Each structure stands twice: as C-alpha cells, then as structure tokens.
Simulated scan of single mutants.
Amino acid sequence: MAKSTPAVVALQRAGVSFTLHTYEYDPGDQRVGLQAAEALGVNPAEVFKTLMALVDGKPVCAIAPSDHEIHLKRLAAAAGGKAAKMMPPADAERTTGYRIGGISPFGQKRAVPVFLDETALAFPLIFLNGGQRGLQVRLAPQDIVRVLGATPVALV
C-alpha cells in the first residue's frame, strides 16, 4: 500500500503531526468508517468519515463520526443553503481525485467548504481517511479546522 497519498503530502506540507494506520479494506462493506474502527480496534466515535455532498448544487465536504448519519438539513444550514443531498459517487471521485472508500478531506483536487461535526473537538485525536482505501491518519481535530478552514458544526 502506498502511504504517500495527496492527503499525506498535504498534511506534511502543512506541518501537521499525524500517524498512519493501515487495515485490510473490504470493498463489499458499505460502512467504511465502521469497518476501519473495527479493524483498528478503536472506538467508532473516534473514527470519522469524509462525505461529499451538494448544497444548493455546490460541492461541500462533511466530516462526521463513522457511527452516525449526518442530517442533511443541518449541513445545508451550516453552508448557508436551503437543501443538501449526497453527491453521486462518480462526481465525488471526480471532485476529490480519490476513490470511494478512500476519500480524504486533505489533498482534494478541488478545494470546497469543509464542515466538521463538532463532536470531533471532544477528542484529543481522531482517525480520518488518509486518501486511500485501508489507510487512516490519526491527528488532532483542531488541525482539520486550522488547515482546511473547516467549520465545526452539529451534523449528527
């Protein structure tokens, strides 16, 4: 597994302290974040998933705990819009440059507004996709806010 993804490079360039964690990715499992938590033996509330959505037709990135679903109305309100829907997988891949199951908020092809569920700030460190299926980065949630300009908000 390559560990030098655009996400890893972006984190290094930003001077973020992080650790890499790999696990055996199961392409048949639809719950990637929960699969990662189980494989890594960590609390699912500390493993966050990266979701790509459209708010009033414009792309946004939502980061939420893997053991919860986001409320699209909350995401729309946070982004100053009226309606939100999940981005079709092919569009998410084109927008980010990553494959589904390996989407990271860092190192995306195109910068979009990022919204981080506020529960992340309760943890000193969280896990997040590292830009490849089966690769997680563990970092301080404050670094997500600082580097991506992410807005902490209640999404779940």
Rank of each mutant, 00 (worst) to 15 (best):
A2V: 07
K3Y: 01
A7C: 14
A7Y: 02
V9F: 00
L11M: 13
A14N: 09
A14D: 13
G15K: 00
V16H: 07
V16S: 09
S17N: 14
T22I: 00
Y25Q: 09
D26H: 01
P27Q: 10
P27G: 04
R31Y: 13
R31E: 12
R31Q: 13
G33E: 13
L34Q: 15
L40Y: 04
V42W: 06
P44L: 04
E46Y: 00
V47W: 14
F48D: 09
M52D: 01
A53F: 05
D56Y: 06
G57W: 09
A62Y: 06
A64R: 01
P65C: 08
D67G: 01
D67K: 07
D67P: 03
D67C: 13
E69D: 14
H71N: 14
R74G: 05
L75E: 06
A77R: 15
A77I: 00
G80C: 11
G81S: 08
G81W: 05
K82N: 12
A83L: 13
M86N: 06
M87K: 07
D91K: 10
T96M: 04
T96D: 01
G101W: 00
G101Q: 10
G102C: 08
I103N: 09
I103M: 08
F106H: 10
F106W: 10
Q108H: 01
K109Q: 11
V112F: 13
V112M: 09
E118Q: 15
T119G: 02
T119K: 15
L121N: 10
F123N: 13
L125R: 15
L125M: 12
L125Q: 15
L128V: 09
G130A: 08
G131N: 09
R133F: 01
R133L: 01
G134H: 02
L135P: 02
L135N: 04
Q136K: 03
V137T: 05
R138Q: 15
L139N: 04
L139D: 12
L139Y: 03
A140V: 02
D143F: 04
D143P: 01
V147Y: 12
L148T: 05
L148E: 04
G149K: 09
A150S: 11
A154E: 14
A154W: 08
L155R: 08
L155S: 08
